[in-house]
């Protein structure tokens, strides 16, 4: 039950988060994918954190992808510095795929960096929203 609520609230938190500056992409918040790729470009600025990367698919072909995360200053307060990722790094990202199945875009939440560190890459944590909803419904 908690997982379901978390997932649904992830949709709420992240759909608005993606609209903080940009409603250009929309994601399937009820689906989660994990991708590993080699970074070609990393930007930690408005509208959001963006990672451009090459991923080798199941057919051995190299695909161009983009991962979008949280806002710059929010991430700086979450201990990001902007130096975590550089071109050529191989990183693993977990997040939600684009609703447009022709777009290689992922709404990234968790990243395993090249040095093995795990970073939360979004503005707001859906687990927090799930907890608040449960508390609200308990009416303590």
């Amino acid at each position: 039950m908690k997982k379901t609520i978390t997932m649904l609230l992830a949709a709420a938190v992240s759909s608005v988060a993606s609209a903080h500056h940009s409603a250009a992409v929309f994601y399937k918040m009820d689906e989660e994918i994990t991708l590993t790729g080699k970074v070609t470009e990393f930007r930690m600025g408005n509208p959001h954190l963006r990672i451009y990367f090459d991923r080798v698919n199941e057919d051995g072909e190299t695909e161009k992808w983009m991962a979008e995360g949280g806002s710059r200053t929010v991430l700086l307060r979450h201990n990001w510095t902007g130096n975590e990722i550089k071109e050529g790094d191989v990183i693993t990202m977990t997040g939600n795929p684009s609703r447009d199945e022709d777009s290689n875009i992922v709404h990234v939440k968790d990243i395993i960096l090249a040095d093995g560190r795990e970073m939360f890459a979004e503005d707001l944590n859906p687990d927090n929203a799930a907890r608040l909803l449960e508390e609200r419904r308990r009416r303590d």
Partner: peptide, 21 residues
Amino acid sequence: GAMTTPNDEHWKVEDITHCWA
């Protein structure tokens, strides 16, 4: 706002999901 202080007990679920801006 709620985006910078999401863990503060003041916020309700609707604040951190739909009213942080």
